[in-house]
Design a binder for these strands. Structure first.
Ligand SMILES: [Mn+2]
Ligand SMILES: [Mn+2]
Ligand SMILES: [Mn+2]
Ligand SMILES: [Mn+2]
Lengths: 218, 218
DNA sequence: AATAATTTTTAGATTAGTCTAAAAATTATT
DNA sequence: AATAATTTTTAGACTAATCTAAAAATTATT
C-alpha cells in the first residue's frame, strides 16, 4: 500500500531521474516537491524501507523496479485524465494539469482501463507526452527541439517541453497547436531567435520559445 | 478550506440527519464512519470550531447552513460521477459507489460543471437518488416503498433504499432495474412477502426486498 | 592539504487524525 | 429516587508528514 504522499515523491523522483542515469539528490526532490530537504530525507528513508528506492546516505536515490512501476502507473493515469479533460470536457491544454494532479491518485484498475477504452486508447496526452500502456510500456517518438531544426526544415509540432500556462497560452495566441505544420526560415545569429512560417504567416520566436517546442521533421 | 476527512464526516452527518429533525449522535457517526466515538468527539469539536456544525456537549450535532452546503456539494459530485461511470464507462450500478467515494473529493468547479453538461444534466443517479443542481437544490419525486403499495397497484421502479452490491445483484438477477414496470398481485399475511408480476412473469419477493425498493404508481 | 561553501542528515517540535482506557454525563430500570 | 446501563467526553499515546535549527558529511576553492 502506497500513500498519496509517497506516490507524489515517487513521481517526482521518476521525473527527475528520467534524463541522466545518476542518482536524484535530496535537494532536487525538495525543490520539485516544494518542501524542505529534511522532509525529503525522512520520506526517502521510508521509501527505501518499503523498497521503492535504493538509497545510501548522502548519495541520493534511484527508483527500484517496484518504484518505477508505481511511477509509470501514475504517469499513465495523469495523462489519460488530461486527454479526458481536453477531449470530453472541453478543457484547454493549459487547464488540465492541476486537476489531473488529483485525479491521478484515484485507485481503481477498472476505472483506468475503461477510461482508456472510452478515449480510444490514446497514445499521447494533450502536451504530446506519451501515455504508458497498461503494462507500463512507453513508446517514444523521435522528436527534436525546434531550436535544433535547420534552416529550411519543414516540421510538425508534436509536443512541449514546458507546459506552464504562460507558455501554452503564448502558443494558442500564435495559432501553434500540436499538429501544426511550420517551416524554419531564418535564424538570427545575435540572439538565436528564428523566423518560422505557418501556412502563409511569418512569425519570429525567441530562442527560449524554440527551446520548449518539440517538432518532428516532415 | 475543508479537508478530505472533514468532508467525509460532514457527509455522514448529512446522511444521518436527513430523516428525523433531531441531532445526530456521536455513536451514530462513529458507526457510519467505522471509527471510534472518541475520534468523533474530537472531529465534531473541530467542525464546530469551523462552524460546519452546531454542537453542545452530550447533545449531538446538526449541520449549519455552511455545513449543509458542503454536504450537498459532495453528494452532487458523488452522484454525477456515478452517472459517468455507468453511462460512459460501462460500470454496473453495484460497482460505482466505491470509486465515487474517492472521485467526490476532487475539488474543481469547472470539472464538475463540465461533467454535468457532458452527461446531459442528469437529474438522478444510477440508484434513483436525486442529483442536487449547482445551487444545491434537490428536487424530490414522490416515491413510496414497494412494501407500502396496495394489492393491484401498477408501479414503476424508481430507486433503491439499500444500494449494497448484494441487493443490486439480486435485482439484476431478477430483471428488476430502474424503469421496470410491475404489478403487485398478492401479499402473504404470514411473512408479508408479496407476489409481483413483471411483464408476464410472476415473482415472489420477501418483505425485506420490498422494503428496499422505491416505486411510483403508474 | 587545509579551509570554505554547500548539501544532507539528525534532533526535537508540531499538526491532523486516530486509538485505548478511564471518567463524567445522560438515560433506562428497578 | 436510587442504581444500573449506556453514551459521551477526556486524558494520554501513536503514526504520518511536516518544519526549524544544528550537526555531520561532501564538494569546491584556495
Ligand atoms: Mn500534466
Ligand atoms: Mn501532460
Ligand atoms: Mn454511492
Ligand atoms: Mn448512488
Amino acid at each position: 500500500m502506497v500513500t498519496l504522499t509517497e506516490e507524489n515523491y515517487i513521481k517526482a523522483i521518476y521525473h527527475l531521474g528520467k534524463y541522466g542515469a545518476n542518482n536524484v539528490s535530496t535537494n532536487a526532490i525538495a525543490k520539485e516537491m516544494e518542501t524542505k530537504a529534511s522532509s525529503v530525507t525522512d520520506m526517502v528513508k521510508k521509501l527505501s524501507e518499503k523498497s521503492y528506492v535504493d538509497y545510501k546516505k548522502y548519495q541520493g536515490v534511484t527508483l527500484t523496479n517496484k518504484g518505477k512501476e508505481v511511477a509509470v502507473n501514475i504517469v499513465r493515469k495523469h495523462r489519460l485524465w488530461e486527454v479526458f479533460l481536453v477531449e470530453k470536457l472541453n478543457f484547454s491544454w493549459d487547464e488540465v494539469h492541476e486537476v489531473a494532479e488529483h485525479l491521478e491518485h484515484i485507485k481503481s484498475k477498472k476505472l483506468i482501463s475503461q477510461l482508456d477504452a472510452f478515449l480510444g486508447f490514446p497514445t499521447h496526452d494533450p502536451h504530446g507526452d506519451p501515455i504508458p500502456d497498461k503494462t507500463g510500456k512507453i513508446k517514444k517518438i523521435d522528436k527534436i527541439l525546434l531550436s535544433e531544426a535547420e534552416i529550411g526544415d519543414n516540421c510538425i509540432c508534436v509536443g512541449v517541453q514546458d507546459s506552464s500556462s504562460d507558455f501554452l497560452k503564448y502558443l494558442d495566441k500564435n495559432d501553434i497547436a500540436l499538429g501544426t505544420a511550420l517551416k524554419v526560415c531564418h535564424r538570427e545569429p545575435f540572439d538565436n531567435s528564428i523566423t518560422i512560417k505557418i501556412k502563409t504567416k511569418e512569425l519570429i520566436i525567441s530562442n527560449m520559445i524554440a527551446n520548449n517546442l518539440f517538432v518532428k521533421l516532415s
